[in-house]
Design a protein around this nucleic acid. Structure first.
Lengths: 195, 195
DNA sequence: GTCTATATTCTGATAGAC
DNA sequence: GTCTATCAGAATATAGAC
């Protein structure tokens, strides 16, 4: 990365990232111009290039940061216990984390195809690492008989797809509140892997 | 729609739609230029405007057609029976239909944000109509005690999210074949709504 | 039914003033 | 650290020849 690291670490750098995240999530990477991002931040288009070498790197940095923070947050949230305990912790963590950051999950799952091959491979690796945490839990439950999951790799993908879906429809102040949604999803997930 | 209906109904019209579908699914609506579509079909960019009034209408027509065909196909596939029978039919139909048309579901769920408000409302209405078919099945099962689904609207969304996920990772000739995938997903869905 | 040519606007990115 | 000015190319869409 050719960005001048730290030397412009004022307030504008983070604002550029925030604006890019919001706009990419809302309209898609390809549909958003550097001028739009600049306008949102309140600077001219040329000024963006003080904070990122190019548009592609801006997207990649956002996705990479998101996945790394997601992984670190789960490591911190995983308190151990029985496979069932851990699966519940995972489900509730995943929903809560993503409802707090709807823009992040949007770009993490929808802009993969706009990454250049090298960047794609790196982000996909991080995503696989996160999925592997869930597979480990399912394997443990399958081994001790608390789950009946014939294919834990497929089940992990199915579970994450289901949980991710919540961000596409949940709206604050709607028919169901966060706690209710969290519990309803956990209830379905728990039963779906039950013995 | 200002397109000259039928008068150019040779072979190029369908080819334009096929190329647009494939390219939009692969790279995203905003990232694909009319020149790329034209190049893929083997005509010049200007010639596309004989088959569509503009790029936006091309996207909208693809999404609308897909949703209408999906609805009609399910109406034909729904053979009735117990709620459990119908849910199994729905799950297997949905997976099979979408694995046969990966490009369609890709744009149907990822390009909504690129539709203009009027077009968005129409496509969302069709999507809601499809979802309503699943809600009906869940309601019936909840009423006769064969399912335990406290919130059928949320459950329908969760189920469709889970089933849709299959298109993001399934590859022909991979570790699992279609029949195995279909059965594994159905098994999870069945348990997730079980009493 | 497709072509070439073109109008107009926008794109990502850079140079250099202040 | 942000500005203005600008480059070179690509975007959608149209006009009119054949």
């Amino acid at each position: 990365m050719a960005r001048k690291q730290g030397s412009h670490a004022g307030i504008t750098g983070p604002k550029v990232r925030e604006a890019a995240l919001r706009l990419f999530a809302r309209h898609g990477y390809a549909a958003v111009s550097m001028r739009q991002i600049a306008g949102d931040v309140g600077v001219q288009a040329g000024a963006l290039y003080l904070y990122t070498p190019d548009k592609q790197t801006l997207l990649f940095d956002l996705m990479k940061s998101h996945m790394e923070e997601l992984l670190a947050a789960w490591e911190a949230a995983d308190t151990g216990g029985t496979p069932l305990d851990r699966l519940e912790a995972f489900a509730r963590f995943h929903i809560r984390y993503h409802l707090d950051r709807p823009d992040n999950i949007f770009i993490a799952y929808m802009e993969l195809r706009n990454l250049e091959p090298d960047n794609f491979a790196k982000v996909e690796g991080l995503r696989d690492a996160y999925e592997a945490r869930l597979i480990d839990i399912l394997d443990a439950g399958q081994a001790d008989g608390s789950f009946a999951v014939p294919d834990t790799r497929l089940a992990a993908k199915a579970a994450i797809s289901m949980l991710n879906g919540v961000t596409t429809w949940f709206r604050e102040g709607g028919r169901l509140d966060r706690a209710a949604v969290e519990t309803l999803y956990w209830d379905m997930l728990r039963k779906s892997v039950s013995a």
